[in-house]
């Protein structure tokens, strides 16, 4: 094998909802142990892209490969889903389960929760996102929005998956907590060698997390490059986006 195969390869992926063409030929490659951040205006299809990648939505056309194997069809995709850890934009915590059961879910896959080792592991994961054991027996509805987000993050990383997909991990968090989550993501990538794809609106956070930044615009990847080069992208739309210029 001369060339290394990227962990994730997204090629010419298109997805429409009715007449609304959301993704129109997206190309993106993510190498092993790389952390890529996708930015782009609200409603441009970032969440749709991540859902196509994990198989919750079926792309209309295009290919998605994991480690060089094309995955198509939901059943095939399910076979690799154990390697993914996904944080949903709205958390998607199981509201009939306690915080501890939520975080332990990927460890037990919904079966017996009472094992001491599982409990310990879940508490350790909660500690990684800055939450103490005192909230373990609460239910998601008893938590603040930011705490919910962190519990969802803990659930996504509990099994140390190879591929991490984070949909706005720091939205709704205070700056200090945001920085903690950023460093946690960096730590996951550096220490366990995971591959991460993060969606964010926060450019400071993107600079901290990303090896590479890709900007989604009009259904395609408009610009991508190393984080250090985003200021000098030479692209007017990118400049306007990162500086928050209206118009």
């Amino acid at each position: 094998m001369g060339e290394t195969v990227p962990r994730i390869r997204i090629a010419q992926v298109c997805k429409s909802f009715g007449t609304n063409r959301v993704l129109d030929g997206v190309d993106l490659e993510i190498g092993r142990g790389e952390s890529v951040v996708v930015v782009g205006p609200s409603g441009i299809g970032k969440s749709v892209l991540i859902k196509c990648l994990i198989g919750l939505l079926e792309p209309d056309s295009g290919t998605i490969e994991i480690d060089g194997t094309r995955i198509a069809g939901s059943s095939l995709r399910r076979s690799v889903s154990g390697r993914f850890g996904m944080l949903f934009q709205n958390g998607a915590l199981f509201d009939s389960l306690s915080v501890l059961e939520n975080v332990a879910f990927p460890l037990t896959r919904g079966r017996v929760h009472s094992l001491a080792a599982v409990r310990l592991e879940a508490l350790r994961t909660l500690a990684r996102v800055g939450l103490g054991p005192e909230i373990a027996s609460l239910f998601p509805e008893d938590l603040s929005g930011g705490m919910r987000k962190r519990v969802a993050l803990a659930r996504a990383i509990a099994t140390d998956p190879d591929i991490l997909l984070f949909d706005e991990p720091t939205t709704g968090l205070d700056p200090i907590m945001g920085a903690l989550i950023d460093s946690l993501i960096v730590q996951c990538v550096r220490e366990s060698g995971a591959t991460a794809l993060t969606i964010t609106h926060d450019m400071d956070s993107a600079r901290r997390i990303a090896d590479r930044i890709a900007m989604l615009h009009a259904g395609r990847v408009l610009w991508q490059g190393p984080t250090s080069r985003i200021e000098a992208s030479g692209n007017e739309v990118v400049d306007r986006f990162i500086n928050g210029v209206v118009g």
């Binding site: 198989g55 399910r78 889903s81 998607a92 879910f105 896959r109 919904g110």
Partner: peptide, 25 residues
């Protein structure tokens, strides 16, 4: 109502991403 709420709040999608088949569970 319970399963519908889980569908609407993406909990069913979350089950799938956690390698648990929603029909089974």
């Amino acid at each position: 109502a319970e399963i519908g709420t889980m569908r609407v709040t993406e909990q069913i999608d979350a089950l799938t991403t956690l390698s648990t088949h929603p029909v089974k569970y």
